[in-house]
Write a protein that binds this DNA or RNA. Structure first.
Lengths: 207, 207, 207, 207
DNA sequence: CATGAATGAGGGTTCATTCAT
DNA sequence: CATGAATGAACCCTCATTCAT
C-alpha cells in the first residue's frame, strides 16, 4: 500500500548471488523499459523476466523508482566511460582533431543502447532534483571545461563555463537527435557529414 | 475487440458552451501535467479541476491520450506562432541580426510556459511516428531552410538540409536547456551572454 | 492494442490455498448470478462475497467472462455426471423403463441448482460458437444417439440423428420448463404425471 | 442518476408524430439488440439510430427496460398473430393435418425475425414475474388447449392442461432450436423431415 | 533470504438518466 | 415537446507493495 519514493538500492550486494540477482533485475528493467515503456513496466513483469520473485526484487530495491534509477545510473556510467576515455586520449591533440574525436565519441556513446537511451531520456519521470538529463552527469561538463582550460591559448578569449555549456549541449543534442531519432534514415556517409559539420560548428565557435 | 488509441478530439465543439468546456479541459490537463506529471494525471482529476464531470471529458475527448495530444497541439501552435512571426520579420535582415532575432525568439517561445514545455518534452509518451519532440513540428525546419535558401549567397556552400538540422537542433537545445533547466540560476546578463554566444555559434558556422 | 476476451482460467490452481480460493470465487459468482443476474454481477462484489480481493480474482481469472465460463463449466459437468451415469445404467433396460429413467435423470439434473440453471440458460451471453445452450454439451446427443443405435431393432426405422434431436430437445425442454419455471406450482403427483406423459411422448414416438 | 425500473410506455402516443417516433425507437432498439446484444445497446445509440434525441426517447419510455419490453411485446404480438390465425384455420381439420399446420406455423413464427427472437429469448433479463419466455404468452396455451378440448373425442383420455403443456413446449423447443440455432445448417428437406417427425411426435402422443 | 499469493487503492471509461435551453 | 450537453455512480481491471510461509 504505502508508496514511499525511495531511490537508493537497499543493500550493497556484497555477496556474489546478490550481485547476480541485482544485475539481472537491472538488465530486465532496461529490456522491459525498452520494449514496453515506463508505464507498462510492472515490477511483477520485471521480476519474472529477471527470473526472480517480486519479493526478491523488493529485497534489493525499495521501489520501482529505485530500480529505474539504477538503470539510469548504469547506463550513465557506461556513457561516462566513453566520455572519460576519449577526453583522456584527446588532451594532447590539436583542437580540430580533438573535437572530431569527441563528436565521434558522443555518437559512440549514444549507440551503446540507443533504444534504452531514448526511453530514459524521454519518459523517465525525473526522479532527482536538477538533473542534467541525468544521463550526462555534471562530470562531462567538468571534463570538457578542463580541456578548454588546458588549451585556453588556442582559442579566443571566452567565458569558459558558458563555452562549455554551448559546446556540450550542442554536441549532445546533435548526436542524440541523429542517433536516437534518425539512425535508420541516415547512411554512413550522412553520419560522416554530420560529424564534419558538428566539428566545424564547434571549432569555428571556439577559434 | 480491438480498441484503437484515438487521438482526435471527438467533436469540433462548435457551440459556445462546448468551446469553453473544451478549453477548460485542455487548460486543466496542462496544469495537472505540470503539477503531477503524466502518470499521476488522472482523467477524474482533470475533469474535477476543469469543473466538469468525467462524462463531459469523454464527450469531447475519446481518451486520456487525446486530451494530452490536444495540450501538445495547443502548446505547439503557440510555439509555432512565435517562430513563424519571427522568421517573417527576419527575412530582410542581415544574417547576424537575423540569427540573433531567431535565438531570442526561441527563448521567448520556451518561456511561454516553460514548466509545461518541460513535461511535454520529457514525459509524454510519443504518440505519433517519428515526431521531432512533436513540439517542433517539421515546419520549423522548413521555414529555417527557406531562410537559408533565400540567403544562400551570404553563406559558404553547404548542404542545406544538413545545415538546417545543425542550426535548428543547436538553437533548440541551447535555449531549451537554458530556459527549462537553468532559468532560475541565470541572470539577465547571463541570458544576454548566452544569446551572444549562440548567435556567434550559428553565424560562424554558416559563414 | 487488441484485448481478446480470454475465457480460460489463468493458472491451474494446483496448490491447496489456490484451489480453495478458486472454488470460493466460482461459488460466489454462481450465487451472485442467481441473486442479481449477469449484468449486476460485478467483479468487486464477487470478490467480496468470495472473501478475497479483486486482485486475487484477477490472479485466477483473466476476466469476468472467464469466471462465468468457469461457473458454466462446473454446472455443465455436474449435469453431465448425472446424464452419463444414467445412460450407463440404462443400456440394458427395455425401452420404456429406459426412457422413464432418462426423464427422471433430466429432472434430477435440472434440480441440482435450478436457479443457477435458469440464469445460465437465460442470460449468459453465449460465449462460444454454436453452443447448444452450452449446458447440454454435444455429449448428451452422442450418448443418446448411442443408446438409440444399440437398440435400433426395438424401434421403427428412422433417421438416428433427427430422432436424437427430437428426443433430447423435447425431454430437455419439458423437464427444464417444469423444474425451472413451474417447480413451485407443481405437486409431486403433478411431477409424476409429467414423467408419465413425457415417457409416453418419447416411447410412442420411437416405436 | 436515479434508475427506477419502470416498464410501461409513458404515453399512449395518440398523435401521429408520436406514433412514428415510438415505432422508430422500438425498431432501432430491435436492430441494435440484434447487432450488439443487450449489454452494448445503449440508450444514446438507440436514440441516434432512431433519429431522435435521448431526451425524446425518455419522453416516450421511462427506462431502457421499458423500451426493451416494448420490443418484446411487439415481437410477441407478431408471433401471436401467426399462432392465432393458424389455430383458427385449423379448427376444422383432422388432427394430423392440424398438427402439421401448427408445426409449420411455429416455424414460420420463429422465422419472422430469428435473430431478434434469439436475443430476446437468450439475453433479456426477464423483467416481469413468471413469464413463459414472455414471447409465448399464456394465450398460446389457451388456444391450443381450446383445440384439444374441441377435438377431445379424437384423442385418448388425458389431462388437458398437461397435454397442452407437453405439446406446446415440445413444438416450441423443436422449432425454436431448429430455426434459431441450426437454420444455416439445415436444408429444406431437413426442415421437411423435422416437420414430419415433430408432427409424428405430437400425433402419436395425443392418439 | 526467497517466494508468490494476496491486497486494494485507484485508473480509464461507459452509459442511463436529467434538465436547461 | 425536442434537444443533447452534462452528470457521476459504477464497472472492469492493473500494479506497487506486503507478508505469511
Amino acid at each position: 500500500m504505502a508508496r514511499k519514493p525511495l531511490t537508493k538500492p537497499r543493500k550493497h550486494a556484497s555477496q556474489q548471488r546478490s550481485r547476480v540477482t541485482v544485475d539481472a533485475l537491472i538488465e530486465a528493467t532496461a529490456r522491459i523499459l525498452v520494449k514496453d515503456g515506463f508505464d507498462k513496466a510492472s515490477t511483477n513483469r520485471i521480476a519474472e523476466k529477471a527470473g526472480v520473485s517480486v519479493g526478491s526484487l523488493y529485497q534489493y530495491f525499495p521501489s520501482k523508482e529505485a530500480l529505474v534509477a539504477a538503470v539510469v545510473k548504469r547506463h550513465g556510467e557506461e556513457l561516462m566511460q566513453v566520455v572519460r576515455e576519449t577526453l583522456a586520449e584527446v588532451t594532447a591533440l590539436p583542437m580540430e582533431q580533438a573535437v572530431r574525436r569527441l563528436v565521434l565519441a558522443a555518437i559512440e556513446a549514444h549507440r551503446i543502447d540507443p533504444e534504452l537511451h531514448r526511453v530514459l531520456a524521454e519518459q523517465i519521470p525525473r526522479t532527482g532534483g536538477t538533473e542534467e538529463s541525468a544521463l550526462l552527469g555534471g562530470e562531462t561538463y567538468a571534463l570538457f571545461r578542463g580541456y578548454l582550460d588546458a588549451h585556453r591559448d588556442e582559442f579566443r578569449p571566452m567565458d569558459l563555463g558558458l563555452a562549455t555549456f554551448v559546446c556540450v549541449t550542442s554536441i549532445e543534442a546533435l548526436t542524440h537527435t541523429a542517433v536516437v531519432h534518425h539512425a535508420d534514415r541516415l547512411s554512413d556517409e550522412a553520419f560522416g557529414a554530420l560529424v564534419d559539420e558538428t566539428t566545424l560548428l564547434i571549432v569555428r565557435y571556439l577559434q
